[in-house]
Design a protein around this nucleic acid. Structure first.
Length: 409
DNA sequence: TTAGGGTTAG
């Protein structure tokens, strides 16, 4: 409850609340209700203002008002102020009541500020406070952020905190899929598989299609095609549906192994089972066939993709450019490159590196210089091109280009 | 009810 009026209260020094003009002179009953009313009306800036007025006039606010104020700070993305305020509350009131506010704070830092480091730091601070118990969702969001950044040491930190006797949160599909994909992302598919197998053996995890997709990707990276077959059989026995992402990764795995026919069969299976292909699944197919030297098939998929109402993106077109370059069809490759410009799609270092590689093979170094100039004008670092071995294949030009590029970089 | 899985150069 707000104690009102404050000590030594007089009309002369009464708090004036400018944001809510009809309350120029506070009516005690309405002032008590104001944070709640403002909260219902989503007037977060006004809540922060009212609270600062209350504080500066030494009016004590009740626990509900504290919560409303902190939530308003979070809605306004004032995370540090919210954290400082929560720390002053800890121990003064029932900490259990603050748990959901702690959750919103850490989740806001992850999703809005993209700063899981700060989120984890605060989480560790809050865990020291009696009665504070962040939700499993908060842990999952942090794990997801760190996994996407490839910061797996942080992910392991969080898994340890989750397993602590105080919480004992299980590793569910949300957690496992994030962790497995994180390990694959940093090039540690063995660890990904190890984590998955341990989670299944412990009995805490019943994998779903998402988790199976991440495991499939790990098996593919390891070249364990037999394990993929076992996984697929297990999914069929457990009536788990194969969706577009699962099929995409499966096809990608076959293509990387050079198993083009098997990849194509999976594409047919998708069509038969009426699993609609999306942008990425088409791009994977186009890239696979381009790399295999079958540009005709790749272009066929490009047309089919557009017939399906899907808009190819830079990655898709870059895969087509690669396919043409690989076949020595530079005119066609540049025709696609020109089309990118007309479509307003900005080429990146991948596109330029592929084109430069193709042009080098033909020995047209004037064109290489033109492309390098274009890159520079667009602010794309040409340094990356120096790692293209094709430039080094021509000692005379390669050395010259190296010097030029290093001067520009 | 939902937070989680997928694509490009050399």
């Amino acid at each position: 409850m707000i104690s009102f009026p404050p000590k030594n209260h007089s009309k002369k020094n009464a708090p004036t609340i400018y944001t809510v003009k009809k309350w120029v002179y506070p009516n005690p009953e309405r002032l008590q209700q104001s944070p709640l009313l403002l909260s219902r009306n989503q007037r977060f800036k006004a809540i922060i203002h009212v609270f600062s007025q209350l504080s500066s006039n030494e009016i004590n606010a009740d626990a509900q008002t504290h919560t409303i104020f902190t939530k308003a700070l979070l809605k306004e993305h004032k995370y540090e102020e919210a954290a400082d305020f929560l720390k002053t509350l800890a121990g003064k009131s029932n900490n259990f009541r603050l748990n959901r506010v702690f959750d919103s704070l850490v989740q806001g830092l992850c999703t809005f500020n993209q700063d899981p480091e700060r989120g984890l730091c605060l989480l560790k601070d809050f865990l020291k406070i009696d009665g504070v118990c962040p939700s499993s969702r908060t842990f999952c969001l942090l794990i997801c952020c760190f996994s996407q950044m490839g910061k797996m040491a942080r992910v392991i930190d969080l898994l340890e905190l989750m397993s602590d006797d105080k919480l004992k949160y299980p590793f569910d599909n949300y957690v496992c899929s994030s962790v497995i994909s994180g390990f694959v992302r940093i090039g540690e598919p063995e660890l990904a598989v190890g984590f998955y197998e341990t989670a299944v053996k412990s009995g805490s995890l019943t994998p779903n299609t998402v988790t199976c997709t991440t495991v499939l990707t790990a098996y593919c990276k390891l070249g364990h095609i037999d394990k993929v077959s076992d996984l697929v059989a297990w999914m069929e026995n457990n009536e788990l549906a194969f969706d577009v992402v699962f099929y995409s990764n499966w096809i990608y795995g076959y293509l990387n192994e050079g198993l083009i026919q098997e990849a194509f069969q999976k594409f047919r299976a998708m069509v038969d089972k009426k699993v609609e292909l999306d942008n990425i699944s088409y791009t994977i197919l186009i890239d696979g066939f381009s790399k295999d030297g079958n540009i005709e098939k790749a272009v066929g998929f490009l047309y089919k993709m557009r017939r399906d109402g899907l808009e190819p993106n830079l990655v898709t077109y870059t895969a087509i450019i690669l396919g043409f370059c690989k076949k020595g069809k530079l005119d066609e490759a540049f025709a696609i490159f020109g089309m990118l410009k007309r479509l307003g799609i900005e080429a990146d270092e991948f596109t330029y590196a592929i084109l430069i590689h193709g042009v080098c093979r033909r020995g047209d170094f004037d064109l290489v210089f033109q492309l390098l100039d274009e890159m520079e004008k667009r602010g794309i670092n040409p340094g990356v091109v120096t790692t293209t071995p094709s430039l080094m294949d021509y000692p005379k030009w390669g050395r010259h280009l190296m010097l030029m590029v290093s001067q520009k970089a």
